[in-house]
Amino acid sequence: MHSTARRPSLSDAISGIDRSAPARGTAPRRDTGRAVTSRAVWLGAAGLAATLVIWWVATHAMTAPGSLGRQFAPDSAFASLPSLFSEDHLAEHALVSLRRVGTGLGLALLVGVPLGILIGRVQSLEHTLSPTFQFLRMVSPLSWMPLAVMSFGIGDRAIYFLLGFAALWPVLMSTAAGVAQIDRRWLRLGESLTATRRELLLHIILPAIAGPLLNGIRLAIGILWIVLVPAEMLGVSAGLGYLILDTRDRLAYSELTAVILVIGALGFALDGIARLLARALLRSDR
C-alpha cells in the first residue's frame, strides 16, 4: 500500500516554531517589571496632581475673586462639570466625537494598511510614491477645510475626510516600515512551502506588522484628537468642538475649561488603550 504524505502548510510550519521559549541565560523579570510599572503609575499621578496644584495657585494668585479670569481655575472647571452633563449633555457630545474619531481612524486603516503593505513589498512603487506622500504628509489637515466643505458640504462627511486624511499618514508609514523590516527568511519559508499570497499575508505579514501598526495607530489617535476640535467647528450641532464654540459664545468660560479637561482626559484614555494593546501584543510575541 502506498501512503501519501500531506504537504505541510505554512500555518503548520509557523506553529511548529516555539517563539515563546526564553533565550539561554535569561531569567524571568516579571516582578521587577511590575515594580517599575507601579512606580511609573504613582509618579505619573503625582505629576498630574502637581500640575493641578500649580494651575490652582497660578489662577488664584493672578486673578481676583469673582473676576472673569477666575472662571479658568480648576475648581471652577470641576464645579461646572455636573451642569455640563445634565444641561449640555456632555456625554452625548463626547460619544459623537468618539464616533467621528473611530470613523476617521477606520478610513485611514482601510486605505493606509493595504497601501502600506504594497509600498513595503514593491520597492519601485515606494520610490515612485514616497515623494508625493511626504509632500502631502507635511500639509496640515486643516488646510483642506475649504476643499472639504466645497466637496462634501457642511456636516459629518467633511469631518470624516479631514480626520481620515490626518490619520492616514502615520498608519501608512508605520505599515510600510513594518513590512520592510520583515525577516526575508520567513517569506522564503512561505514561498518554499508554496504558500499563496493570501497565506503569506495572513500568517507572516500581518502578524509581523502588528506591533508597528499599533504604534502608528497610537500616533494617529493623537493627531485625530488634535484635528477633531477645529474640524467640529464646521457648522455641526454636536461634538466637543461644537461645545467649545457654544460655551465661548455663552461666555461660560468655566464650562469651556471643563470641556477642555474632558477632551484631554478622553485623549489620554484613548492613548492609554492603544499603548496597552501594543504592550500586550509584544508580550504575546515573545
Rank of each mutant, 00 (worst) to 15 (best):
residue 164 G to D: 01
residue 235 G to Y: 01
residue 204 I to K: 09
residue 188 R to N: 11
residue 265 A to E: 03
residue 65 P to S: 07
residue 243 L to R: 07
residue 202 L to P: 00
residue 43 L to M: 13
residue 131 P to C: 09
residue 229 V to L: 14
residue 253 Y to C: 04
residue 204 I to E: 05
residue 101 V to H: 04
residue 160 Y to S: 03
residue 97 S to C: 05
residue 279 R to Y: 01
residue 246 D to Y: 12
residue 117 I to H: 12
residue 151 S to A: 15
residue 110 L to C: 12
residue 234 L to G: 02
residue 26 T to I: 04
residue 37 T to D: 08
residue 100 R to S: 01
residue 110 L to K: 08
residue 211 G to A: 13
residue 139 V to A: 14
residue 32 T to G: 07
residue 7 R to E: 15
residue 268 F to R: 12
residue 188 R to E: 14
residue 47 G to M: 03
residue 133 F to Y: 09
residue 181 Q to G: 06
residue 242 Y to M: 02
residue 184 R to C: 00
residue 61 A to H: 11
residue 57 V to H: 06
residue 149 V to M: 11
residue 270 L to M: 14
residue 11 S to A: 15
residue 187 L to Q: 12
residue 216 G to E: 02
residue 119 I to L: 15
residue 113 V to F: 04
residue 229 V to Y: 02
residue 193 L to K: 13
residue 18 D to P: 03
residue 200 L to N: 08
residue 49 A to S: 10
residue 37 T to I: 04
residue 271 D to S: 11
residue 31 D to S: 11
residue 50 A to D: 05
residue 276 L to S: 12
residue 179 V to R: 14
residue 90 L to D: 04
residue 54 I to Q: 01
residue 185 R to C: 00
residue 105 L to G: 10
residue 134 Q to A: 13
residue 90 L to W: 05
residue 86 S to F: 02
residue 213 L to Q: 10
residue 281 L to D: 08
residue 268 F to G: 05
residue 241 G to I: 01
residue 32 T to P: 00
residue 159 I to E: 00
residue 206 L to Y: 07
residue 236 V to Y: 00
residue 50 A to Q: 07
residue 99 R to Y: 00
residue 1 M to H: 09
residue 82 P to S: 07
residue 26 T to G: 01
residue 115 L to T: 13
residue 23 A to F: 03
residue 150 M to P: 01
residue 146 P to G: 09
residue 52 L to C: 11
residue 248 R to D: 06
residue 121 R to H: 11
residue 269 A to N: 03
residue 180 A to D: 02
residue 257 T to H: 03
residue 44 G to T: 10
residue 211 G to M: 07
residue 66 G to F: 01
residue 212 P to A: 08
residue 178 G to I: 05
residue 275 R to D: 03
residue 68 L to D: 03
residue 46 A to Q: 02
residue 58 A to H: 04
residue 143 S to M: 14
residue 281 L to E: 11
residue 267 G to Q: 08
residue 55 W to L: 08
residue 48 L to Y: 07
residue 92 E to W: 02
residue 145 M to V: 15
residue 24 R to D: 09
residue 283 R to P: 01
residue 221 I to P: 10
residue 286 R to Q: 13
residue 127 H to R: 12
residue 278 A to S: 13
residue 26 T to S: 10
residue 87 E to T: 15
residue 104 G to K: 06
residue 46 A to S: 13
residue 187 L to D: 09
residue 210 A to N: 02
residue 36 V to E: 10
residue 128 T to D: 03
residue 230 P to G: 06
residue 170 P to F: 09
residue 83 S to M: 07
residue 187 L to G: 07
residue 36 V to T: 13
residue 241 G to W: 00
residue 2 H to R: 14
residue 165 F to A: 04
residue 264 G to S: 05
residue 238 A to Q: 13
residue 233 M to W: 04
residue 211 G to Q: 09
residue 202 L to S: 09
residue 235 G to W: 00
residue 5 A to E: 15
residue 42 W to H: 12
residue 223 I to S: 13
residue 138 M to G: 13
residue 241 G to P: 07
residue 103 T to H: 03
residue 146 P to Y: 02
residue 275 R to M: 05
residue 59 T to E: 10
residue 283 R to K: 13
residue 211 G to S: 15
residue 5 A to G: 10
residue 238 A to C: 00
residue 79 A to L: 09
residue 22 P to G: 10
residue 226 I to P: 01
residue 172 L to D: 06
residue 182 I to A: 09
residue 12 D to H: 09
residue 95 L to F: 02
residue 124 S to P: 00
